[in-house]
């Protein structure tokens, strides 16, 4: 086991009056892919929003390598190297693909750094180079997701929060997305992945956590959760654990 990069302790958060998270405890190991699964409405997206600063925790602690980041603005969280690729489509539809990726470096003041990073990203993600002048809104869902992920790398993040990146994609696009996530992780970045498709999420994860009704119920290695009969019954369907 490595060191904990991100740690949530007793986090309570929600929208307006009601609470959605009722004391979330979660540890994300440095360098690993951690996959968060759970039924609709369990609060998975809310966890990510609270970490990235879209929501403020009402109680509890959120630390990154021991430093408190709970309640910081999204800008401040970004400056700690934490980026969030949300569940909804997040490209700017009327901007070009290139400008979208440039926006990923919005908080960077040094233009030379921005230029170097985007060239690097264009090398790594052919779609960014080949479709640079196209309106982002004209790309397919899968293509958009890849560009979103590419954009998130502009800040050279230590932690990438990714919310259901494969949902709504066809099998080929989904495979590419999972492959990209694995690559990002092998490049040394920590990933906290929320997945609707628990089987494929856990399959690429080192570590998994199961959420239900605003709490983390179970934690374990990806493979142990896949093998857990309770998890299988609740989230994976009754079928034996073959790759989905």
């Amino acid at each position: 086991m490595g060191t904990a990069l991100l740690r949530l302790q007793g986090v309570v958060a929600g929208y307006g009056r009601g609470d959605v998270l009722h004391g979330v405890d979660l540890t994300v190991e440095e360098g690993a892919v951690t996959c968060l699964i759970g039924p609709n409405g369990a609060g998975k997206s809310t966890v990510l929003k609270t970490v990235s600063g879209l929501l403020r925790p009402k109680r509890g602690r959120i630390t990154l390598l021991g430093r408190d980041i709970g309640g910081l603005s999204p800008q401040a969280v970004l400056s700690h190297g934490v980026v969030h690729v949300p569940q909804e489509r997040s490209l700017f539809p009327s901007m070009s693909v290139w400008d979208n990726v440039l926006m990923g470096g919005f908080v960077l003041r040094d233009r030379a750094v921005v230029r170097r990073r985007i060239e690097h990203i264009a090398d790594r993600f052919p779609i960014v180079a080949n479709r640079r002048h196209e309106r982002a809104g004209s790309l397919s869902g899968g293509e958009q997701k890849i560009v979103e992920i590419a954009r998130a790398l502009m800040l050279d993040p230590v932690l990438v929060l990714m919310d259901e990146p494969s949902t709504g994609l066809d099998p080929r696009a989904r495979q590419l997305v999972f492959h990209t996530i694995t690559e990002i992780n092998e490049g040394g970045r920590t990933v906290l992945l929320v997945e609707q498709n628990a089987r494929s999420g856990l399959a690429i994860a080192h570590h998994g956590a199961v959420m239900e009704s605003g709490r983390v119920r179970l934690e374990g290695t990806g493979s142990s959760l896949l093998a857990d009969p309770e998890v299988a019954r609740l989230f994976l369907g009754a079928a034996p654990a073959n790759r989905g």
Binding site: S52, L54, S73, P74, Q75, L78, V83, H84, P86, E88, R89, S90, L91, F92, P93, S94, M95, D99, L102, M103, G104, F106, V107, R151
Partner: peptide, 20 residues
């Protein structure tokens, strides 16, 4: 100007990229 266009097109996403 880019931060304005970004906010118009997707306010949440703009916030997540550090637009105030």
């Amino acid at each position: 100007g880019r931060s304005v266009r970004a906010t118009v097109q997707n306010p949440t996403s703009a916030k997540l990229l550090g637009v105030d």
